[in-house]
Nucleic acid binder design. Structure first.
Lengths: 342, 342
DNA sequence: GAAAAATTCTTAAACGTTTAAGTTTGTTTT
DNA sequence: AAAACAAACTTAAACGTTTAAGAATTTTTC
């Protein structure tokens, strides 16, 4: 069933059929109604989306791009919340949601950029080919959790938030902290940071958070040497369990574990629970993000609350209203949420 | 940058450029290499995906359709795992993942069907327009968690699994059960089922599970009257908290709560914890699905394990290999996983 | 060394729409 | 009643590709 064949069947021009679907004011009510009912009978459910997109140069879809494989979009609680926010706004505005895998391989057939009218790019994309191509399209691009040149962005103050939660911890008496960092360095390995690994300059969320922790430690006169900083290659419960297991085998035990995400922090809580390490008495644990599970887990988790859903909503709104008022960089607030784990 | 303009710049035909990208054997190595490097210089990253799709009648994307708004795809742990499995397989096979909102409104511009080469449809779609349109495309369709005519499907034996877990509960001494059901009836209300509501015949996962519970009760000589069966309109922690709160206010307290999902069961555990009701001593709680949180929560949750990721993988594989061996209905195994909550 | 076959490239028609511009008919204005 | 306008519909070109069929050249075969 094509528009053409419908036109033939009804003995009108294709333009008229098209108008019946797209521009009701271009034909008489009577004819339009006749066309629409006839289309239903014929099983024609409206113009082919691909052809429509090609001709109009508009797809009514927004592309979302993470730097991870697709599976991550559904696995990570923060990413999920973020996408939930996006989906909400897009659905209200009758846009489709196109998930682009940032792990797109080099030789991937190109041109995917053409499938979306705008892009939301989440998380640093240092060397990403696809990101560069997306920029070249000239279509609206909003970056999230990182900044790129003058492009509009939605972000939080990672440094300040990290500083605050660490400051709070050190103020409540912690003196032997361990930091569990995510993707601090470019290695698949789990474990301590080695001396000079950290010094290749690289901007990332993790770096900013780490700097917050370090400065808070300095401020409080707490010793936080490099060998107390651990690296996990991905924000993932399994890996975090492994890391937590090693960290909680240290002697003497640290008196607090500062995690760069709640996913990691819950893993620490799990291991602590198994080892009968009392939280918060023996060990304080804090996370980052405030994922839903953080308030449900026992002991509930002290963390930095950021409204990931709102982040998604905001990003979606920005990319939709290409207007200049949306061309700004937004910094969303965060909040220290103290619960039982500290 | 279009293929045409590149062809002009290099003084060859469009066919040759196209072949350079799609059929390397159709031109000389030398020319191909020259074209590709030149394309990079010109900033042409490959054929426009829309035009390509239109011409080839193939999009290299698979559509996934839930009967819920898009946000649900990212919110619900089971849906997320399912999608994770799909994403994994699709990525391996270099297919795109297109999320179709089942809540698509009537007057939505049609033709979305054309954007995918095949469809995975999750959860019953009784009257869904979009589902019918999808079927009409004649493209491969795989249904999940429900069956439709002869279409291939991936499913579990909901009745049997439900029977088993209830049977286990009643065998361990429970005599005053409450069932927390999801979407048992067509109402947004939370609360007890009223007499005849249940009798409008309707096939659904919930119904099958309920039947399993009921038959197990009958088998064990346990009384499970209609007024002990509660309805929650959506599988959602918030709503479940409300329902749980009401259920745990009953006097006398039930001695077990049988939940149709782990999301609901965790809510019951949360409320029980707040009310200082001891699980499993005073109250046993069981769920369904075995979501990741089920093993992490304390007390950990007794539930029916189903491998949702595998379900996704299976569905994706089926829809990709349109072959006849994939035209079968698959029943994945489930397993009773006993943990601390019972 | 001529016929056959293979290689390399081109021509041109499709894919299913949208839309500016044009045509026809009917309605208003003066 | 002619001129101007509005309404309803049609014509035809374009959107950016792919691909079957053909043309030109080179290589193989006997």
């Amino acid at each position: 069933m094509t528009l053409k064949s419908v036109a033939a069947a009804l003995n009108v021009s294709t333009a008229t059929i098209s108008n019946a679907f797209n521009r009701p004011d271009q034909l008489s009510q009577a004819l339009r109604r006749k066309i629409l009912t006839e289309c239903k009978k014929l099983g024609y459910h409206g113009p082919n989306a691909t052809a429509r997109t090609l001709r109009r140069g508009q797809s009514d879809a927004i592309g979302v791009m993470l730097s991870d494989p697709l599976a991550y979009y559904f696995t990570d609680p923060v990413a999920s919340q973020f996408l939930t926010g996006i989906a909400e706004v897009l659905e209200q505005n009758r846009k489709q949601l196109l998930l682009l895998s940032g792990a797109e391989s080099e030789d991937r057939k190109g041109g995917i950029e053409s499938l979306a009218d705008g892009f939301i790019v989440y998380g640093s994309q240092d060397e990403n080919q696809l990101f560069m191509r997306v920029l070249e399209t000239g279509k609206p691009v909003v970056t999230v959790d990182f900044d790129y040149k003058d492009y509009p962005s939605v972000n939080i103050d990672n440094y300040q938030a990290a500083f605050n939660i660490a400051h709070y911890l050190f103020n409540s008496g912690c003196t032997r902290p361990v930091v569990l960092g995510i993707r601090l360095i470019d290695s698949k390995r789990i474990g301590r940071i080695v001396e000079d690994e950290l010094f290749e300059e690289r901007e990332s969320i993790s770096r900013r958070r780490l700097n917050g922790y370090l400065d808070a430690a300095k401020d409080a006169g707490v010793d936080l040497p490099l060998q107390q900083i651990w690296h996990i290659p991905q924000n993932n419960h399994q890996l975090a369990l492994q890391a937590a297991s090693e960290v909680l085998s240290m002697y003497p035990l640290p008196d607090c574990v500062i995690c760069m995400s709640d996913v990691v922090a819950t893993a620490v809580l799990n291991v602590a629970h198994d080892r009968k390490i009392r939280v918060p008495d023996q060990l304080k644990v804090v996370g980052f993000d405030d994922i839903p599970e953080a308030s449900r887990i026992s002991p509930s988790l002290t963390t930095v609350s950021q409204h990931s859903i709102e982040k998604g909503r905001m990003a979606a709104k920005k990319v939709l209203s290409g207007g200049p008022q949306a061309k700004t960089k937004t910094l969303l607030p965060t909040q220290l949420t103290v619960r039982q784990s500290s």
